[in-house]
Design a protein around this nucleic acid. Structure first.
Lengths: 101, 101
DNA sequence: TACTTCAATTACGAAAAGTAAGTAGCTTAC
DNA sequence: GTAAGCTACTTACTTTTCGTAATTGAAGTA
């Protein structure tokens, strides 16, 4: 990949928000903590990729993973403060889609 | 791909804005009409993909293509009204990146 | 004719995404 | 006690997209 004069923070933000499924996963989690299967059902994403994305988002400090040792096991994902801070971004996209699509 | 209960407009918007390079191309064009080489130089994107993305954005009515038959040829790309309406989205991402990255 | 510039386009290997089947841990059913 | 079910992944494999580099085409210039 070539060099760029682009602001690296913006660039990084675009990589995150722009990565496939990321924004939609955050959009789902804005409704509150949700478990793996719930997210998987709410989006046309495969378990394989959802697992991958959640790990990335956890690593970025955007999503938190909580395991409840019930039967059967329950794993809930929720937004951290950093994750919630993306609400405005997602809402703007939502607004735009209502006006223009 | 599976079925989804997701709003199709939001879904479409995410596909657009979320597609790699799309938001960054729009970000560049917010500064005014620019020619192919200028966009290519401002981003770490290859000509192959830039060409592909610009065609998609033109098809979506977000970007306009203007050819000037000068020597050498000049092709300028600019945002349509629909394209400009994405400014808020891009600015929100920019703001977020400043605060959190 | 050979050479230059710009805006693409093509060819091809590499990376990411999509699909589907399998795994692991624990419980209830038979 | 083993078979079946539930949940949350994981693995194996195919298809699509991306990245790099070389090439094309049009139009003028040396």
């Amino acid at each position: 990949m070539k060099e760029t004069a682009l602001c690296p923070r913006l660039s990084k933000a675009m990589e995150l928000v722009g990565k496939r499924w990321t924004a939609l996963i955050i959009y789902q989690l804005l409704e509150g903590p949700q478990r793996f299967n719930a997210i998987e059902s709410s989006l046309p994403i495969s378990g394989r990729l959802l697992s991958e994305r959640l790990k990335e988002l956890e690593k970025e400090g955007i999503v938190e993973r909580n395991v409840f040792s019930e039967v059967p096991i329950r794993v809930e994902y929720s937004l951290t403060e950093k994750g919630h801070s993306l609400e405005q971004v997602v809402r703007e996209i939502e607004e735009w889609s209502k006006k223009w699509l």
